[in-house]
Amino acid sequence: MKQVLVIAERRGAVLDEGVFELLTAARALAGGGGRVAAAVLGHGIGGLAAELARGFDRVFAFDDERLAEPDGDGDAQALLPLLARGGFDAVLLAHGNLGIDLAPGLSVRAGMPLLADCLELHWAGQSLAGTRAVYGGKVHARVVAAAGGTGAMATVRGGAFAPAGPGTVAGEVVAAALPAEFAPRRRPLRTLRPEAGEVDITQSERLVAVGRGIEDEDGLQLVRGLAAALGADLCASRPVVDKGWLPRSCQVGTSGVTVRPKLYVAVGISGSFQHMGGIKGSPFVVAINKDRAAPIFGVADVGIVGDLSEVVPALEAAIEEQKG
């Protein structure tokens, strides 16, 4: 029986769906008789708090105009008294951009151990323990919070837990006040939205994704042909966007856009969690990669190991032939 707090992340006026994955993790950690609480920060977030209260036993709503934009530095100040009051055995955040911005500083101020980017969480005696991916995901590490009475924090990798369904808990919403000494040190100047691409890939049912494996822009042309044959839109992993071959709006991943297609064809994509974290729903995943050991084959439904410059045109031709 444990007390678990989830710090909800919001994207603009909506909750990040990751919070319902965290709810699953939190319930499992709380165990029967344990309670799960959520904290949500922002301005005008009554609706979000109510939504959370359907799944969480308690919701701490920090509603203040000074919290209008997520701010890892300022949010830590806001949350500190809640954590410092004690009583939480575990505090969970999503290991996304905000979690990376917020959790380390908050954990130090709250005097809590922090298990980062966990794939799995459990109790080892009274200590929070988990498994995390290290060395580019090629190795997993089992970690455990050092014994101590203050509870522990963890950031959780997107997709590691299945999202909890719509709740019927009718939890209590508590208006949480900002500490008197609250003084945000960051001044937000502006939020940059990615330049609108030709297509909004968040709406695409079929996506062909290109990764580092395409090597050059000629490779990109080949993949465009395949996408056209499939009637799919083109998206990419971070390295391709960093090279400037496709606009930022095409970047799928935890630091990019979240998509929910029905078909996902990954060409030359290694399958890092940062990329896979941007794919929701459960699409049929096809992987084409020259490296049989690439992690993408661990998540794909079907795959071909081979040279992209051979496989991609052959597949395009076969699809065209099929279409007649």
């Binding site: 809590m112 151990p113 922090l114 298990l115 323990a129 991916a133 290290v134 995901g137 090629k138 190795v139 997993h140 590490a141 089992r142 970690v143 455990v144 919070a145 050092a146 101590g148 995943v285 992987a287 049989r292 993408i296 084959f297 661990g298 998540v299 794909a300 439904d301 079907v302 795959g303 071909i304 190991v305």
Partner: peptide, 21 residues
């Protein structure tokens, strides 16, 4: 002085694998 202890490293479980054609 660490707050998180490394218990050990392991190779990731094989899990689901794609049907490789």
């Amino acid at each position: 002085g660490s707050r998180v202890r490394l218990e050990g490293l392991l190779l990731p479980p094989a899990g689901k694998r794609a049907e490789i054609l």
